[in-house]
């Protein structure tokens, strides 16, 4: 069991550095580069279309569809989005919620995940099931809404958006699974040194959990950034600022929603969002979050190394 204490820097680490590369390596890498390039291009293409269209005049979009290279270039849609400055409030709100929610959520999820994977924890199956069960049965819209508004009085409160997204059964079980790959000896060695469970968790386990924290933190952050559902239920017109994606949701859905409703036969609504406005809002609302991944990626270092244990 004796292994060197060794940290591997993912950025420079090459698993094949000390072995001779065979044909199979070249084949896989070749396939890798080709497939990943093609898929990545397929992913960015629609986004370029959205950007191109957001700079195109509405008349061109209606007659010729979406545009990769804007004909009749205009920034009108962006002027609309930025007008009034409400968008900056939304940015601030979204960034705050994403930051706070991800931090608090990560802490609770990792604690719970650690406890639940401890084989000497007698309640681990009971609590796991207790948590997992909620992913199968939901109360449905009306009971949930009434509880949040009548009992918790969270209508028009940003907590109605922040709290329900803190964790999910899926993330907790995923975390539990990640922690499982940390050998039990670490906990044991901590115990031998006389550390309590909390101490073991914070001092020994957490530092080894970087990839897991990065992954789950990423999911949490994306969840907060993309959130519109809770906002659509609990943030009414009395609220000043809305999360970005909820603004986007409203802009993008309003026309379709109305067209397919009973109201469409009776109500004449003008000034529905144009296609270019939808696209421009999408670009603005996606914004800086696309740059989150490269930032998070550095934490995918092979942090879980058995080598850390001196056995």
């Amino acid at each position: 069991m004796a292994k060197k204490d060794k940290k591997i820097d993912y950025d420079t680490y090459d698993s094949s550095a000390r072995v001779k590369l065979g044909t199979s390596d070249y084949v896989i890498r070749g396939v890798g580069y080709v497939f990943v390039t093609l898929y990545a291009l397929a992913c960015i293409f629609p986004f370029l279309l959205i950007i191109g269209t957001s700079f195109t005049s509405e008349a061109v979009i209606r007659s010729a569809g979406v545009q990769l290279f804007p004909r009749d270039f205009t920034t009108e849609a962006y002027d609309m989005v930025l007008k009034g400055g409400a968008i900056w409030k939304s940015y601030l709100l979204t960034i705050l919620m994403t930051g706070i929610g991800t931090g608090v959520g990560l802490l609770i999820i990792s604690m719970t995940g650690y406890a639940l994977q401890r084989k000497d924890f007698v309640l681990r199956n009971v609590i796991s099931f207790f948590i997992y069960f909620t992913s199968l049965f939901q109360a449905g819209l009306a009971p949930y809404y009434l509880l949040m508004t009548q009992t918790y009085h969270l209508k028009d409160s940003y907590f109605a958006v922040l709290l329900p997204l803190l964790m999910s059964p899926w993330l907790i079980i995923l975390m539990k699974n990640f922690v499982k790959s940390i050998p039990f000896e670490i906990t044991e060695s901590g115990k031998i040194d006389g550390a309590g469970d909390m101490k073991i968790f914070t001092a020994l386990i957490l530092p080894m959990l970087k990839p897991a924290l990065a992954t789950i933190g990423l999911f949490l952050a994306l969840g907060y950034w993309n959130e519109w559902y809770q906002s659509s239920l609990f943030l009414s017109s009395k609220v000043d600022a809305y999360p970005l994606q909820y603004m986007l949701y409203k802009v993008v859905n309003e026309a379709n929603s109305l067209k397919n409703s009973v109201a469409a036969q009776f109500v004449t609504v003008t000034d529905l969002p144009t296609n270019s406005l939808k696209m421009a809002t999408a670009v603005v609302a996606t914004g800086p979050i696309v740059l989150l991944y490269p930032f998070v990626q550095r934490y995918f270092i092979g942090g879980i190394t058995v080598g850390a244990v001196k056995g």
């Binding site: 819209l141 508004t149 009548q150 659509s232 017109s237 009395k238 109305l258 609504v269």
Partner: peptide
């Protein structure tokens, strides 16, 4: 004025009524 956005208006309108507070 309490606006119910056209997006999903039936559901939000009815939920707000059901709130009864």
């Amino acid at each position: 004025i309490y606006y119910i956005d056209w997006t999903d208006y039936l559901s939000v309108y009815n939920l707000t009524l059901a709130q009864m507070d």
